[in-house]
Design a protein around this nucleic acid. Structure first.
Lengths: 351, 351
DNA sequence: TGTGCAAACTCAAACGATTGATCGAAAAGG
DNA sequence: CCTTTTCGATCAATCGTTTGAGTTTGCACA
C-alpha cells in the first residue's frame, strides 16, 4: 500500500515473505505517533486527549497492518489473563454441556476466553497445574465430588473460584440451583395425578444435589400428607439408574410413581421397568430432573423438570468477573424451573 | 550482587500479608544464584553445567517458595503459548465429547492446555478473535460446516490448523475417519442378515461425513449385487432423523432395513418408526454410525458402528504438536472400527 | 610462569504492551 | 509581555522469562 516517506519499521505484509508479527511499534511508525498513543487508542483509554485526525491515523494504521495486541505481553504487564477456567467431571454428560454454553456466552460477552477442562485430561490436580501461575483469572468448579485436598490448595491460590451446583461444608463459595424446589415440583405433579406410593430414585450419597433433591422430595411428600416412600441411591448414570429401579420394583409394595433425581439415571430406570415387563406410565409413572432434547425421544417421552443450567454457567462467569478474591458467595439461583409434562406420567392404574 | 544473607527480595510467604507472586528473582535470591541458573534448572536445559549441590539448592528454593513460572512472561519471550484450540459446533453433541476427551488427553501429555470453544460462544469468527495474537499454538476444527470465508483467514494466520472429520475441497489439512468402511460394515451386516431392501438415512448434504458414508453405502450395496435403495438426507439431529424416517416409511415399497448415518438421527428415526406403528427390529432393522453409552438403553438397544473418535482428537493434537505451519496433512485415520450388534437388527420379517 | 581449557556461573538484552511522569507548544489570563 | 493552563502527545520504566554471550575460577599441561 505505501512505499515512500516511511522508515522501514513496517512489516512485509504485502510482499510474499513469511508473516511478520505486527506490533505496537509497527503501527506507531505507520501512524507517525508514539507507541503509547496507539496503546491508548486501542484500549479506549479515557485519560487520553487526542486530536480526532490523529486517532483516525492510528485506527487506519491498525486496520491496514492488521494489528492484534499480543496477549502474552498484555498479560505480563497487566497481570490479567482475560481467561476463565471451568472444570467439569465429564464432557459426555449433557448437563455440563448446558452449563458450558451459558458460561461460554457470558465469557464471550466480557471478551474473556473460557477454557473448559475435564477430569479426563489429568484430573483437577493436573488441570490446575497446567493453568499455572497467571494463566487464568478465575475458576469455576462444576459438580465434581471429592478432591477435597485440592480445595485447600485453591484457597491459597490467588484467583477467585466458585463451585457450581455443589456446596461443600467448609467453603463459602458456591452458586447452586434450587434443587429442592425442582423436586417439590416433580413430586407435586405425581401427587396431583393421584399417586400415593411415590418412591425416590435418588442421586449418589456424596453428591450435594442428591441431598437437596431428596430433601425436596421429603418436604413435598409430607406437605401432601403422604408417608415417605422408598428411597434408593444411584449414580447419575443409566447403569446406576437401572440397578436402583430394579431394587424399587422388587419391593413388596412397589411404588406407582418414581421421582428420579437425574435424567441419566432415568434412562436406565426406564430400561429396568421394561425389563420387568411393566409399562410406563400405565403401571409406573416417572419424572426426572433435567430436561434434555433426548427426553422427548425416549419411549415414552419423559416428563422432566427443566433447570436453568445455562443460567448457572452464565452467573458463575459473571461472578468471577465482579468478585473480589476474598469475597464469599452463597447463592441459590432463582432462574426459571419448569415442569415439562410428556408421556411418562399419568394417573395411577385403577383410578 | 548480594548484601547480607538475604537481600529482602524474598516474598512474605510465611507472614499473614497478601500473597506475593513468587518470581525467578525470588528463587534466585533464596538459592544464591543467578536467575538464569534457576531458569535453566527449571527447564532442564541440557546445555547447563551445574554442580549437583547447586541444583539441589535451586530445587529446594523452588519448592520452599512454591515457585511457578509465569506463563505470560514465558509466552512473551518464547512466542509459544503452550495451548491448543479446538472448535466444535456444539457441546451437547456427545460425538464431540469423545473427540474432546482424546484431544484433552493428548494435550495434557504434551503439557499443553486445550481450550475448546463452540459456536455458542460467538461463532468461529468470535472464537478466533478472542484467541487473538499468540494465544494458541494451533487450532483444531471439528466437524463444522460452512464458515468458508474464515478458512482463508485461517490460512493467513500464523498458527497451524487442521480440520477433524471433515475435508474441504480447497484445503489440504485434515484428518478424517474411515466413514466409508464404517458404512460398508453396517450395510454388510444388514445384507448378511438377509435384507435386500436397505435404505440409507443419510447426513445433511453439506457434510463431508455424509458424503463418505453414503459412498460406503453405495459400494456395499453394489458389492452385494443389490440395487441401491432409497436415500434421504437429514440433519444429524433427532428431529431431522424423525422426518426423514417418516419419508422412507411412506414410500410405496418401504425398506426392511435402514442404515442411519448418525446416532442422533437414529434416535429420531426410532421414534418415527414407533409412531408409524411398526416395530424394530421386527419390521425394520436399524443400524447407525457412532456408538454411545446411550445406545444400549434405547428401546430396543441400538446396533451401532463404533468409530475411534477419541483417537481422532488425540491424533489431531499430536499433529499440531509436530507439524510445521506450512506442511499439509491428508490423513484417513485407521483406528479400530467396530460393529456393535444390539437388538435393533434382525433378519427381515418372513425369512 | 604462562596458556589453554573446562566447569560453573553471571550479564544483560530481548519479547510487546501498559502507564505514570514529563514535555513542548499553543492558548488563556493578568 | 510574562506566567499559568490546557492540549496533545512523548519518554521510559516495568512486567517475569529466556538465552546467547561473556566472566571467573580452578586445574592441567608445557
Amino acid at each position: 500500500m505505501r512505499s515512500g516517506t516511511d522508515g522501514g519499521v513496517k512489516p512485509g505484509v504485502g510482499g510474499g515473505g513469511k508473516p511478520v508479527r505486527v506490533t505496537l511499534a509497527h503501527v506507531a511508525a505507520e501512524a507517525r505517533v508514539d507507541r503509547a498513543v496507539v496503546s491508548r487508542v486501542v484500549n479506549n483509554d479515557p485519560s487520553l486527549n487526542i486530536r480526532p485526525e490523529t486517532r483516525e491515523r492510528v485506527l487506519a494504521a491498525v486496520a491496514a497492518l492488521g494489528y492484534r495486541p499480543n496477549v502474552a505481553a498484555r498479560s505480563l504487564r497487566t497481570a490479567r489473563a482475560h481467561m476463565f477456567g471451568l472444570f467439569i467431571p465429564d464432557f459426555a454428560n449433557p448437563v455440563y454441556a448446558e452449563i458450558i454454553k451459558g458460561a461460554e456466552a457470558a465469557a464471550a460477552a466480557l471478551s474473556y476466553v473460557l477454557v473448559t477442562g475435564s477430569a479426563a485430561g489429568a484430573g483437577l490436580g493436573g488441570y490446575m497445574d497446567l493453568l499455572g501461575q497467571g494463566r487464568i483469572d478465575g475458576l469455576l468448579l462444576a459438580g465434581a465430588e471429592g478432591e477435597s485436598g485440592l480445595i485447600e490448595q485453591l484457597d491459597r491460590a490467588t484467583v477467585p473460584w466458585i463451585m457450581l451446583n455443589r456446596r461443600s461444608p467448609s467453603v463459602k463459595r458456591y452458586v447452586v440451583l434450587d434443587d429442592e424446589r425442582a423436586a417439590r415440583l416433580a413430586v407435586e405433579h405425581l401427587v396431583g395425578l393421584g399417586h400415593r406410593r411415590v418412591a425416590h430414585l435418588a442421586g449418589p450419597d456424596g453428591a450435594d444435589t442428591a441431598l437437596r433433591r431428596r430433601a425436596g422430595y421429603s418436604m413435598a411428600m409430607s406437605a401432601a400428607g403422604l408417608p415417605e416412600g422408598q428411597v434408593v441411591a444411584a449414580d447419575y448414570t443409566p447403569a446406576g439408574g437401572a440397578a436402583a429401579m430394579a431394587e424399587l420394583l422388587a419391593a413388596p409394595d412397589p411404588p406407582t410413581a418414581v421421582f428420579v433425581a437425574n435424567v441419566a439415571s432415568a434412562i436406565g430406570a426406564m430400561e429396568a421397568v421394561r425389563a420387568a415387563g411393566l409399562e410406563i406410565p400405565r403401571q409406573i409413572s416417572m419424572v426426572a430432573v433435567h430436561d434434555l432434547d433426548l427426553a422427548s425421544y425416549l419411549a415414552p417421552p419423559l416428563t422432566t423438570v427443566r433447570m436453568p443450567l445455562a443460567e448457572l454457567g452464565r452467573r458463575g462467569v459473571a461472578l468471577l468477573g465482579s468478585l473480589k478474591p476474598e469475597e464469599s458467595v452463597e447463592e441459590v439461583l432463582d432462574g426459571p424451573i419448569e415442569l415439562i409434562v410428556r408421556r411418562s406420567t399419568a394417573p395411577p392404574h385403577g383410578t
